[in-house]
Amino acid sequence: MPIDQTLVGREFPPTEPYAVTAVKLREFAEATGAPYDERIAPPTFPIIVAFHAMNGFLADVQVDLFRIVHGEQRFAYERAVQAGDVLTASLTVDTLRQIGGNDIIGTSSRITDADGALVCTTKATLIHRGEDA
């Protein structure tokens, strides 16, 4: 079933605050082979918080994660994420198109710190593979 067009422009509630720890930075660095820095996160680390926001969105629109394929991802950083940050992400649905039985969902998420200051903006295109696709 195609996703409802009225979702375009809708902003979802912010995710639960996520505390960035040195242990998590090490785990993420080790999983990607990146050189470990105990203070500064690798560039794609904010996807953890963005993913929380995406899961909230998918649950809301009742779409199964296994039907989602990632089409595009962009990050624009105000600053690097650091150990000690407490981050939340707010996702907005920017665009929605149906192509060949698939929904092409354009989203953007603002990732902010405990003071509400913008840390990074990230845009994701999600491809929802329809059951007949």
């Binding site: 820095d37 560039p43 394929v69 089409g71 595009e72 962009r74 690097a80």
Partner: peptide
């Protein structure tokens, strides 16, 4: 070194 990337993006 870390912390120098200001923009990063791609399609899959």
């Amino acid at each position: 070194g870390p912390g120098r990337v200001v923009e990063f993006g791609c399609k899959f």
